[in-house]
Design a protein around this nucleic acid. Structure first.
Length: 573
RNA sequence: UGGGCGGUCGACUAAUGGUAGGUCAAGUGCCUUUGGAGCACUUUGUCCAGGUUCGAAUCCUGGCCGCCCAGCCA
């Protein structure tokens, strides 16, 4: 099948043209030559302690997309200042995900590349009397910090001499002191209403091996002490981050000003939130660890790898991000918006095929036994260049159980006794009678007759019928497993929980439905993992890597819009 | 309740003192050999109260509501 799908091609990012405040800011800075003739420089700064998710995709599109738009540059910089949580595995997956999304970085850096420079700058701040070694314990520091409404108190170690601070700090770096025994703090203002300015910790002692610097260091810089300077070293002009860092901006600037280095500027934007979705590393990790999902790349996960396995395309994600836009308000985007953009993309390029998820046997009583016709089917009505294929048709078929009702409800146009429908790409057929299970009364076989004059494409095929249904020839059908997904959570905002419960109580028990014996048209037999197609009338599907020779596994990426389902739910309500 | 940041259709987002527009969702109709796709049309909005102004979503004042901050996490 989908070997002709233009999958995962690295297409250029096409940012939306709608105005947004980040673009406006860049335009203004360019106009006023805030950075002279320097090009726009951005960076995407993930911490390598987890997998990227759709929220990061927004940041990636903004960081790379906006720089691209202004012929600027974007670095990928791993914010690896905490050796206890960071691993190479995450570094590799992050690089793969960024590339899959369609972006390529100009420079690849690590905050740890700057540990030497950061250390020298710490020495300078000490010499300038702007940093000191504090012997208070973590608990004491917290106590001295004060609260949101009361100012803090100065540490008794705050006024050590430069010489003593220098001695202590260099010995901290040499490993003379145990973890947690001392920290280096910036000397700013313990009475600041901004907690971040109450003598923030710059360095802590951590006798831990770092994924890149090994055992060279036993002191590690804090995020605030590392981030702005890293930006500055890379001459980042627009350092975009999410809203929760707004309060850190004064500190970001303070370090840069005290050091007199390149004045990178931080600009905050709102995080992406999605209905029925949780986007926090901690909770995602919990879902994986507690086995609520099968792993980081479970197709129900909002991780980039999960979404990829689900069958989403990078183009769909990028289009979604630009459509959602960016601002400084905390909102929650309707999942339907994301689904719209996958459908839009896949509709244009996913080849069509016929597949029956819940088979119901159909016998065409007046069709010659043993006869097989190879019918022409269109691969993609939206794309004539996708061509056609042959689909075998014979006396015994499978149709979808849903496509037959012994007693049709109002507005039901599919097959039922005495009614006519068209079999897609084949004939108009009429239901003559049904065979039921003696015990259960369930319809197990449907008998129909066909009108040989109505073969698709023939001159006399124009008779109108109320509906067209899909089918698969029983003798030629390929068996497959199909996994149908619903939202992972059943609450629009999964973080809203009853007292005493946690977010896992909002898990949707029906988020995964396994269909083990779906019947596919034979052209689907050789589908390779990752390839996508539309099962006509059902939705977009992609081949899962769990597939083995002879038994394909398909994931439903997203269902087609379903007008009938709407009619049913309206009638029911 | 100290500080910071916000509040525009159901959702997201434009309008930068001068016609409140777009996308998604919802609805109606057209079309259709996918109840898909497409097309057309429609409904719904400036948090509240004052003020400035010829004119306010936009500026001012005062409220109300929401989010973030007290890691040696990022």
């Amino acid at each position: 099948m989908a070997t002709n799908t233009k999958t995962d091609a690295v297409a250029p990012a096409v940012p939306g043209t709608a105005s947004n405040f980040l673009r406006d800011k860049i335009v203004e800075d360019l106009k006023t030559k805030k950075y002279g003739d320097a090009v726009i420089q951005t960076r995407f700064p993930p911490e390598p302690n987890g997998y990227l998710h759709i929220g990061h995709a927004k940041a990636i599109c903004l960081d790379f997309g906006l720089a691209d738009e202004f012929a600027g540059r974007t670095n990928l910089r791993f914010d690896d200042t905490n050796p206890e949580k960071e691993e190479q595995e995450y570094v590799d997956s992050i690089m793969a995900d960024v590339r899959w999304l369609g972006f390529e970085w100009d420079g690849l850096y690590y905050a740890s590349d700057y540990f030497d420079q950061l250390y020298e700058w710490a020495i300078k701040l000490i010499k300038d009397g702007k940093a000191y070694v504090d012997d208070l314990t973590a608990d004491e520091i917290r106590e001295y910090r004060g609260t949101l409404t009361e100012s803090g108190r100065e540490s008794p170690y705050r006024n050590r001499t430069v010489e003593e601070n220098l001695d202590l700090f260099t010995r901290m770096a040499k490993g003379e002191f145990p973890d947690g025994s001392r920290v280096l703090r910036a000397k700013i203002d313990m009475a600041s209403p901004n907690m971040n300015m109450r003598d923030p910790v710059m360095y802590r002692i951590l006798h831990a091996s770092h994924h890149r610097t090994g055992d060279k260091w036993c002191i590690y810089p804090m995020y605030d002490y590392a981030h702005g300077q890293s930006d500055s070293i890379e001459r980042v002009t627009h350092s975009m981050c999410t809203l929760e860092f707004t309060d850190h901006q004064p500190l970001y600037r303070w370090y840069i000003e005290q050091l007199g280095i390149f004045p990178s500027q931080q600009i905050e934007f709102d995080r992406l939130n999605l209905t029925y979705t949780l986007l926090s590393k901690r909770r995602l990790l919990q879902l994986v660890n507690e086995g609520h999902v099968r792993g980081w790349d479970d197709p129900r996960m909002p991780t980039i790898c999960g979404i990829r396995r689900r069958g989403y395309t990078p183009e769909a994600i990028r289009n979604f991000v630009w459509a959602v836009g960016v601002s400084r308000t905390n909102g929650i985007v309707d999942l339907a918006m994301l689904e719209h953009f996958v459908r839009e993309d896949l509709n244009k390029r996913a080849p069509r095929a016929m597949a029956v998820l819940r088979p119901l046997k159909v016998v065409i009583d007046n069709y010659p036994e043993g006869q097989v016709e190879e019918l022409d089917a269109i691969n993609n009505p939206e794309d004539p260049s996708a061509g056609t294929r042959k689909v075998p048709f014979s006396r015994e078929l499978y149709i979808e159980q849903d496509d037959f009702r012994e007693v049709p409800p109002p507005k039901y146009f599919r097959l039922s006794p005495g009614r006519e429908v068209r079999l897609r790409y084949a004939y108009i057929v009429k239901c003559t009678n049904v065979v039921k299970d003696e015990k259960t009364g369930e319809v197990v076989e449907v008998h129909i007759t066909y009108d040989p004059e109505t073969r698709s494409g023939s001159a006399s095929a124009n008779r109108k019928v109320k509906s067209t249904i899909h089918w698969v020839s029983a003798a030629h059908a390929v068996n497959a497993e199909v996994r149908l997904y619903d939202t992972l959570f059943s609450k629009e905002d999964p973080s809203q929980v009853e007292a005493g419960k946690d977010f896992t109580s909002n898990l949707n028990p029906n988020s995964l439905e396994m269909v083990s014996d779906a019947k596919l048209e034979p052209s689907l037999a050789s589908a390779v993992p990752g390839s996508r197609c539309q099962f006509e009338r059902l939705g977009y599907f992609c081949v899962d890597p769990d597939s083995v020779a002879g038994k394909s596994v398909f994931n439903r990426t997203v269902a087609l819009k379903d007008t009938w389902a709407k009619i049913v739910s309206k009638a029911g309500s």
